[in-house]
């Protein structure tokens, strides 16, 4: 069934995109904001370091970019696989 295999391919592609986006999501919040903060301590930002900026503001900006990038990437994928509404 070609319909089924197309749907499976669509889902596999979606999962690949989600995984990549979640890795970026994790690195820019839990990573730079918490776990990797000591590594960024050398980079000064307005009286503190880059990790503090990521934890309080940078991560939020990254989240915004991620959602819109995901939405536009998926719209393209929907069309490629002919599953758009």
């Amino acid at each position: 069934m070609s319909d089924n295999s197309n749907n499976n391919a669509y889902w596999a592609a979606n999962m690949r995109i989600i995984k990549i986006f979640l890795v970026i999501w994790f690195i820019c919040s839990f990573g730079f904001g918490i776990l990797l903060r000591p590594l960024l301590s050398g980079i000064a930002v307005g009286g503190t370091d880059l990790g503090f900026w990521f934890a309080q503001q940078g991560s939020i900006l990254v989240f915004l970019v991620l959602i819109f990038a995901y939405a536009s990437r998926m719209n393209k994928l929907d069309r490629e696989h002919g599953v758009d509404e």
């Binding site: 989600i18 979640l22 919040s29 904001g33 309080q56 989240f63 995901y70």
Partner: peptide
Amino acid sequence: SAYLMGWTGGYVLLAML
């Protein structure tokens, strides 16, 4: 900072998952 990251980062999960 958990409040700031937590209450915004969830929207990424919402949009994708």
